[in-house]
C-alpha cells in the first residue's frame, strides 16, 4: 500500500472541504473494499478522508412510512436493528448475509452504495425496494443512481448521508451466495406495495437493475407461477470464473421465484 495522509473530520462540512481541496483524495467509509484495493495498489490516493467520526451519519430511524439509514451505519447494525426487522425484515436479512461477522462490524451501507460493486447486496435492495440515496446535495432515486460497473450518479464532491427505504407491504431477498467470498453471484430483491411491484437484481449485470417484464407479470399476479417462464437476458449479464452469463440469467429467474414465494 502506498502511503497517504489520513484525516478524520468530525463534521460533514469539513469532509466536503477536504475532498474539494485535494484532487486525489478518497473518502473511506468502512474500508472493506477500499483497503484491500489500496493493498493491491489498484488505487493510490493522496489522502484518505474517514467519515467514521461524523456521528450524524450513523443510525436507523423511522420517518413516516420510510426507514432512514445513516450512510455510516454498519451492516451488523442494520441486520440487528429492531426498526428494520419490524418494518423491512427482508432488508435486515440482506444485511445479515453480507460478508462475514467481522466485515459486518466495519462495512457500511453508504460505502457499499458509493462503491457499487456489481456483486454487492445493497444495490439490489435499493433498486428492489425503490430506495432513495440522500447526499449532501440532493436525493437520488434508485432508478437514476446506478450507471454502470462501479459507476454511480455521485459527483466527486458528493457524499451519501443516508438511504431512505419506503416500507413495502411485502418484500423478500434471495441470494445465490458465492461460498468463499459471500458476494452475490446473483441476488434478487422483490417488493410489493399496492399495485407497485419491483424486482431488483444484483450480482448479475454490471450494476443493479430492474426486471421490468417480471414486474409487469407480478403486478397481475404476485405468484412465483406468474414468472415461471421468465429469466434474465444473458446478453446483458456478466460472465466470470464463478458463473457464465447464461447461468446468471437462469439464476435471476430461480431467485425471483423464490423471493416471490417468500415475500
Amino acid at each position: 500500500m502506498h502511503n497517504f495522509d489520513y484525516h478524520a473530520p468530525k463534521l460533514l462540512d469539513t469532509a466536503l472541504t477536504m475532498i474539494s481541496d485535494r484532487e486525489d483524495a478518497k473518502i473511506i467509509a468502512g474500508g472493506m473494499t477500499l483497503l484491500p484495493t489500496l493493498k493491491q495498489r489498484l488505487a493510490a490516493p493522496s489522502d484518505l478522508i474517514d467519515l467514521a467520526g461524523i456521528a450524524d451519519l450513523r443510525g436507523v430511524k423511522k420517518d413516516g412510512n420510510e426507514i432512514v439509514i445513516g450512510a455510516m451505519t454498519c451492516h451488523n447494525d442494520v441486520a440487528t436493528s429492531d426498526i428494520v426487522k419490524a418494518n423491512i425484515p427482508a432488508l435486515a436479512k440482506l444485511a445479515s448475509i453480507i460478508g462475514d461477522p467481522a466485515v459486518r462490524h466495519r462495512g457500511t451501507i453508504g460505502g457499499s452504495l458509493a462503491n457499487s460493486d456489481p456483486a454487492a447486496d445493497y444495490p439490489g435492495a435499493v433498486i428492489g425496494l425503490n430506495g432513495t440515496i440522500v447526499t449532501n446535495k440532493r436525493s437520488i432515486k434508485a432508478d437514476d443512481y446506478f450507471l454502470g460497473l462501479f459507476e454511480t450518479a455521485l459527483e466527486r464532491d458528493e457524499i451519501i448521508t443516508s438511504v431512505r427505504f419506503p416500507i413495502p407491504e411485502r418484500a423478500a431477498y434471495q441470494k445465490f451466495r458465492h461460498p468463499a467470498s459471500g458476494y452475490a453471484v446473483v441476488g434478487v430483491m422483490v417488493s410489493k406495495t399496492g399495485a407497485d411491484v419491483r424486482v431488483g437484481v444484483t450480482g448479475a449485470g454490471p450494476c443493479a437493475f430492474r426486471m421490468s417484464e417480471m414486474e409487469a407479470a407480478l403486478a397481475k399476479s404476485f405468484t412465483a407461477d406468474a414468472i415461471k417462464d421468465l429469466k434474465g437476458n444473458a446478453d446483458d449479464l456478466l460472465s466470470d470464473i464463478h458463473s457464465t452469463n447464461e447461468y446468471r440469467a437462469h439464476l435471476v429467474g430461480v431467485l425471483a421465484r423464490r423471493a416471490v414465494a417468500e415475500a
Binding site: Y6, M32, A52, A102, H105
Partner: peptide, 29 residues
C-alpha cells in the same frame, strides 16, 4: 491471508470483532 478472508487477525475494537488486517492503525485511535 492479509485479504480480509481468513480471520486469523480478528481482534475486538470497542468490544466488536474486526479483522485487524483491514483496519488502519490510525482508525483505532
Amino acid at each position: 491471508c492479509d485479504t480480509t478472508q481468513c480471520g486469523c487477525c480478528v481482534v475486538h475494537v470497542d468490544g466488536k470483532a474486526v479483522k485487524s488486517c483491514t483496519m488502519l492503525a490510525v482508525q483505532a485511535s
